[in-house]
Write a protein that binds this DNA or RNA. Structure first.
Length: 494
DNA sequence: AAACGCAGCAACCGCCCGTAC
DNA sequence: GGTACGGGCGGTTGCTGCGTT
């Protein structure tokens, strides 16, 4: 049985609102409020409008202190930073911009900001290409690097636009490349976000493309390991996110191999035994950089760009995705360049914890077969980040609380009543934190252990429609609204 | 001046989620 | 636990105004 419509569509007015309608709605709400029922409201005041339409009109236009247009650069930057972190969750983004509505921001993004971003991308491509051609010329004259000079020209010959990494030695290329690798495409959120990450999440003038070029003045060699063509994982499976999950997350297509960072990604979608997520490395963005990258200043080329090799090559036939190559160049351990790490965890799954004695739960959405999305909130600089967290998170000391049956937990633990335990994993259905030593939950946030439990393919069998529905139901509680996080007492706990 | 194309934006649609019963 | 319902949200549509030809 389908859902009953919220109103009789035949008898409601649609289209633009008249000043009279606006006045009626506004004066009623100002006097009486919405009464908690938008559906009944239009009848009360004699408006032939759908309740939802009234709600939208009020929220987006009539309510006090609404700002329209005239977005400042700071607002642009906030939008971009948040877009990196949480994607197109406009209501959450709007909550950080007083006077702005989600609809406004959404429209602004779709009509202007995205284009502005793409304009920058084109500019950057042109600059990079120029730089690449000069370097290529130098390499040709000097006889090439390691006998690979032909490869460089091969790249350029194949696609003049693909001079983005002209200094890279050619890596083994899979038979079928993800579309984004063959031809940059910025029609989807993921691509736009990657681009934003690359730009540092900002449009402001002090992070223009020139600086972006200068910033890559140090060679970076990520300490990644590469899965081989058979998806063999060169280290413990419990520390690895299954490749299909990440692949689909990145490109929507299966790929044959993938880089996996040593830290920061857990078996969220693995059928393996749950890992103690309370042992997650808690690191700052800067620490993250130092942990995950080795800097080799010996390989800086004449144009100030690092040359990545060897470690990317892995065992025969491996390659790295463009995204990771880009990340590697754009993210070094220069503290002045710290903001370039912001959003990195987008590429790393959802376990990069960036904390200053504050909790940041990992972020999950649409948990399922290869559907892990999202990442923790990230600001565009560490100061912004801390300021943001001060605003968003309670001032009281916060500590994640482990659970008694978690043998490996390093955090304070307690035995929880069955009522709050997931039947699947026997772990709490939601994260429990200690606020001033009292167990609280953050509403709507999720506990990584639960995600593991519900996202395990083994729990539901093959990813057919029915099982996906089951998974969806079971995973509803992992939806997170971190930016609206409110500590709330946990029923049944002292 | 008219036609056309485009950008911006308000509003709608349909799905999802939380919650009350 | 299941169901119904209202609210919330993101994606999309279509109108309007402006600029260009």
């Amino acid at each position: 049985m389908g859902r009953a419509p919220c109103c009789d569509k035949a008898n409601v007015k649609r289209g633009p609102w008249s000043p009279e309608e606006d006045a009626k709605l506004k004066s009623y709400i100002e006097q009486h409020g919405t009464g908690g029922n938008w559906i009944a409201l239009p009848q009360k005041i004699g408006l032939k409008r759908c309740g939802k339409s009234c709600r939208l009109r009020w929220l987006n236009y009539l309510r006090p202190n609404i700002k329209h247009g005239g977005f400042s650069e700071e607002e642009d930057n906030i939008i971009c930073s948040l877009y990196i972190s949480i994607g197109s969750r406009w209501s959450i983004i709007a909550a950080q911009l007083p006077g702005r509505t989600d609809n406004d921001i959404k429209n602004y993004w779709n009509t202007r900001l995205k284009k502005k971003l793409l304009g920058r991308q084109r500019k950057e491509h042109q600059l990079a290409r120029k730089s690449g051609l000069v370097k290529q010329d130098i390499i040709k004259r000097s006889g090439g690097v390691g006998g690979n000079s032909n490869s460089h020209s091969g790249i350029l010959a194949a696609d003049g636009q693909n001079s983005y990494w002209p200094e890279l030695p050619v890596l083994a290329v899979p038979t079928v490349l993800p579309q984004q690798q063959q031809q940059p495409c910025f029609n989807d959120h993921a691509s736009i976000r990657k681009l934003l990450i690359k730009l540092g999440g900002r449009f402001s003038s002090n992070h223009d493309t020139n600086q972006a070029t200068q910033d890559s003045s140090t060679d970076i060699q990520p300490t990644f390991q590469v899965l081989d063509d058979n998806n063999n994982i060169p280290y413990a499976a419990t520390a690895v996110t299954p490749t299909h999950q990440m692949d689909e997350h990145y490109s929507g297509k299966n790929m044959q191999s993938l880089l996996v960072p040593r830290h920061g990604i857990h078996a969220l979608n693995s059928s393996s035994a749950p890992v103690a997520l309370s042992n997650i490395d808690v690191i700052s963005p800067h620490q993250f950089a130092q942990t995950h990258y080795m800097v080799n200043t010996d390989n800086i080329d004449g144009a100030g760009n690092g040359i990545m090799h060897n470690m990317f090559q892995g065992q025969g036939g491996n390659y790295v995705t463009d995204q990771l190559k880009e990340m590697a160049v754009y993210n070094n351990n220069n503290t002045d360049n710290q903001q370039r790490f912001d959003g990195m965890e987008y590429l790393y799954g959802d376990e990069m914890m960036i904390m200053n004695n504050r909790i940041v739960s990992s972020y999950g959405e649409s948990i399922g077969w290869g559907e892990m999305l999202g990442c923790p909130p990230v600001a565009s600089s560490s100061d912004d980040y801390n300021a943001g967290m001060d605003r968003l998170m309670p001032a009281a000391p916060v500590q994640e609380c482990g659970f008694a049956n978690d043998q490996t937990s390093q955090t304070p633990s307690m035995a929880f009543p069955a009522s709050i335990l997931s039947p699947l994993s026997a772990t709490p259905k939601f994260p429990i934190y200690l606020f001033n030593q009292k167990p609280c939950r953050i509403r709507n946030s999720f506990h990584p252990s639960c995600v593991k439990a519900v996202s395990s393919t083994a729990q539901f069998g093959e990813p057919n429609k029915e099982n996906k529905q089951k998974l969806q139901i079971k995973s509803t509680f992992v939806k997170e609204k971190l930016w609206e996080a409110v500590p709330a007492p946990v029923k049944g706990l002292p």
